[in-house]
Amino acid sequence: MIRGEHYSWSSSFPLTRPFDWIAQIPRANQLDRFSQAIFELFWQVREKVELPVEIILASPQASNYTDRDFAAGGATSPSKFVHTLPNIRILPFAQWTQWHGRILCIQKDPSTMVHGLIEGVECCEWDSSSGTRWVVGSFQEADAVDLVEAHLWILNTTAGSVRFQPAKSASIISTDQILLENLRNKGPFQLDLGYGIVLNREV
């Protein structure tokens, strides 16, 4: 059985005050809000998390909103163009921690984050000896244009308030929307993610 922790962060943009870490990341002012959200979440939990051997980056909507910013600005900004690749979002974390390791940026809307978890759990089960895996993603609430959310899952085999258990049978794949609704309710829940994996959150 795989256990883990889940952390999240959300805020409207633009922010009313700058991030505490802004001076510590090169060209931080050029980061898009999705990269900022992921790094802010990491910054808040940095002292209690083990660095991973592998990161699965699973951001719903890929980099669509940053792509739109680039296109709407006449496709003239090189710094905006750089962020039109969803894998770039993890770079501030790698810059600050000097982390290096395996990374997979995956997409499968409307279940991108769910699939990130499924891949992460299966990978931990298959190769439990090598260390912690992270599943990370950030996105914009479609109906709240300025609200950006970031989520971080720390997956390992020993401890944590979330458990991933085998399901009796494979079922329909859950959507990110259902996963997020359960997470926002704060209470305990059980959710069949799909492919024979059930997510349990204890409180």
Partner: peptide
């Protein structure tokens, strides 16, 4: 893929639903 089918919607005045789902899966 890096950008998939992004050209299909990103230049539209109102990309609408195009922005809500990644440009690869569907």
């Amino acid at each position: 893929s890096t950008k998939g089918w992004i050209e299909d919607f990103i230049w539209k005045q109102d990309p609408g639903e195009g922005l809500r789902t990644d440009p690869f899966t569907e």
